[in-house]
Design a protein around this nucleic acid. Structure first.
Length: 622
DNA sequence: ACCAGATGTTGCC
DNA sequence: TGGCAACCCTCTGG
């Protein structure tokens, strides 16, 4: 399916109108092109050429224009159809620039482009003709001579842009050193602090001659069960039940909360009347594991009975309803501190709120913990020290707070990032390390034992600079790993796996920066931004688009005996349900509760186990 | 087969 | 400071 889409993308050979107005409007890319030779050297050969013969022969879309004069640039390559000639095309065709002044300034090269010449001549006469270009046009930088996009299952970057992965100029994702081995360029931990009780434990991770005490990682690498289209919108968060091993909580963009016992795949519950828009974070109550707290962009925290779905709002930041976007408050980060009987939530304006779980009332005043007007996307209480709170947000900072003294500017540490921080988590056992995910395509580990908190101990380049229509990626600790080094995170850019573009879920040893495993299934062609590792079992839950997946290790005995995965595909679209009952939410839910057991689905074609995994110590890519 | 639309962050003016 | 356009390896329904 993904493959088909890629082909479709390539088939679009657009007729583009070049006019000087484009430049005047400032449409030239801001990033200056690297030297031409380098670009051409880096530009890869197009794979799977034969597949796209028809593409090249397609008639271009044209517009009939009576005014002004139209010049047609002919692309000689489009008249050929042999694969050899296409290769020549990519190798030899110069990269042209619409702005002739820039060309002269930068390398003084004269381009052999007829259309451009005519345009220049006409300009001297005071006319502004429009050039219809039948040449290949890059959809990223709008220049001719190269094309960005999928060639089969391989994405070709625009060579005019900095690397999409590491953000550095001079190379593309294809040749990025971080794509070859994730540990390349990782900043090593600095050993600054004096010895303490935990040093011995952590030291074993860094000194290879000491026999490792940690067991080999068990990677849940095979889809064990799934519900395709469980939610009606994309999944935004997942949470495992604290005591019931088979219970998974899921929230979505529409505000619905799913309670899924994945031992009984067909029995599915989705509560649709708790929130009116995005559920950003969920937690189970520390005192009653049948109760769910959820923070939503509708400005409320809900407290819901898992069995009945009966919900009561703890706090509503928009009691007067919609008064415009400048006043509408949305709740993002949330965590519960059991010792303090407090729910911490933060909003999109930089404020932190406290709610007492015993009285269900707000306690204290809202405190500005991030830049005023910026979103606070994550909160996390330290697992060992109840006084410590970690926050992160769109002001490019993660901050550590002492909750006994929550005042503006009183943070203990400010962890600086280059871009928005999607998540920040204390390590699950000792609470001594912090794992942050930032939109600058880097996972950072901040170590309070070995390093200091002024700079990250490690920076691991990883592709998660997300498209705005995706749930933000968050690197999550493995709560079972005693060494506190294994983390899981979905990957944004795809790789070509046997001709299919897939987005794996990466397991990374953050103490070394190594990619431990990349997990994918050829049937899951969508990106999996939401991932959670089970607190006790070797289970990974992932949310991809609207679907939920449970992954287990391939050699799981239980699985071998079953020899069959349980895949349920829900039918019925959002609109169909709306037609049935426009206003009745409960009926909407009852419909959702009737999944159709079928193996037909857009993104999941086969019921047979066909999961793939690549465990790699060094190479991420061939 | 193709398109529109939902949607958030960023940097520039 | 606020308005606006660019970003441009998504996903879905119509």
């Amino acid at each position: 399916m993904g493959m088909c889409k890629n082909i479709i993308n390539l088939k679009r050979r657009r007729a583009v109108i070049h006019s000087r107005g484009d430049q005047a409007a400032g449409r030239a890319p801001r990033i200056l092109p690297p030297p031409l030779n380098n670009v051409l050297a880096l530009y890869p050969q197009p794979p799977e050429k034969a597949q796209f013969r028809k593409t090249l022969n397609m008639a271009p879309t044209t517009r009939s224009l009576s005014f002004p004069r139209v010049i047609v640039e002919k692309d000689t390559d489009s008249e050929h159809s042999s694969s050899e000639e296409e290769e020549e095309d990519d190798d030899e065709e110069p990269i042209e620039d619409e702005d002739e002044d820039e060309d002269e300034d930068e390398n003084g090269k004269s381009f052999e482009n007829e259309g451009q010449r005519i345009e220049e001549d006409s300009n001297k006469k005071g006319k502004a003709p429009i050039t219809l270009s039948l040449k290949k046009v890059c959809k990223v930088c709008k220049r001719t001579g190269h094309e960005a996009g999928f060639k089969g299952a391989t994405y070709i970057d625009c060579p005019m842009k900095p690397c999409f992965l590491c953000k550095m100029p001079g190379h593309t994702t294809m040749t990025c050193p971080h794509r070859v081995a994730t540990e390349f360029g990782v900043i090593p931990a600095s050993h600054k602090n004096t010895r303490n009780a935990l040093l011995y434990v952590f030291e074993r991770q860094f000194k290879p001659h000491i026999p490792p005490i940690k067991p080999a990682y068990v990677i849940p690498d095979q889809v064990n069960c799934a519900v395709i289209r469980y939610h009606s919108r994309r999944v935004t968060c997942l949470e495992f039940h604290p005591t019931n091993n088979r219970l998974l909580l899921s929230g979505d963009k529409k505000g619905q909360v799913g309670v899924w016992d994945y031992d009984k795949v067909h029995e599915k519950v989705v509560y649709g009347n708790i929130h009116s828009c995005i559920v950003n974070n969920m937690r189970f109550s520390p005192t009653n594991d049948g109760m769910i707290y959820a923070a939503s962009s509708d400005g409320t925290i809900s407290c819901t009975d898992m069995e009945t779905g009966i919900s009561s709002p703890l706090m509503n930041l928009n009691p007067d309803g919609w008064q415009g976007p400048n006043s509408w408050r949305m709740l993002y980060g949330m965590d519960i501190n059991p010792e303090k009987h407090t729910v911490f939530v933060a909003d999109n304006f930089g404020f932190l709120y406290l709610v007492d779980t015993r009285s269900n009332n707000r306690s204290g005043q809202a405190v500005l913990i991030h830049k005023k007007g910026s979103k606070v996307v994550g909160l996390h209480c330290n697992p060992l020290q109840p006084d410590l709170l970690l926050s992160c947000g769109n002001d490019h900072f993660a901050r550590i707070w002492d909750i006994r003294r929550l005042v503006v500017g009183s943070s203990l540490y400010d962890l600086a990032h280059r871009r928005v921080v999607n998540s920040a988590y204390f390590s699950p056992i000792s609470g001594c390390k912090i794992l942050t995910t930032s939109q600058d395509n880097r996972i950072r580990v901040w170590d309070s034992i070995f390093g200091n908190l002024h700079s990250p101990s490690r920076e691991i380049v990883h592709s998660h600079d997300f498209n705005r229509h995706l749930t933000p990626f968050r690197a999550e600790w493995d709560p079972k790993d005693p060494s506190e080094s294994l983390a899981v995170i979905g990957r944004y850019i795809s790789e070509n796996y046997n001709g299919i573009a897939l987005h794996p879920i990466d397991f990374i040893d953050v103490s070394t920066g190594q990619l431990v495993a990349e997990v994918m299934d050829p049937n899951i062609t969508t990106i999996s931004p939401v991932n959670k590792l089970h607190p006790r079992d070797d289970v990974l839950a992932s949310g991809s688009s609207r679907s939920l997946f449970i992954w287990r290790p391939k050699d799981d005995h239980e699985l071998v005996e079953q020899d069959e995965r349980k895949i349920v595909i829900c039918t019925g679209t959002e609109k169909k349900r709306k037609h049935k009952s426009k206003n009745d939410e409960s009926e909407d839910d009852s419909d959702v509760n009737k999944p159709t057991p079928t193996s037909k689905g857009k993104n999941f074609k086969s019921r047979k186990p066909s999961t793939e995994i690549r465990k790699s110590s060094q190479k991420m890519k061939r």
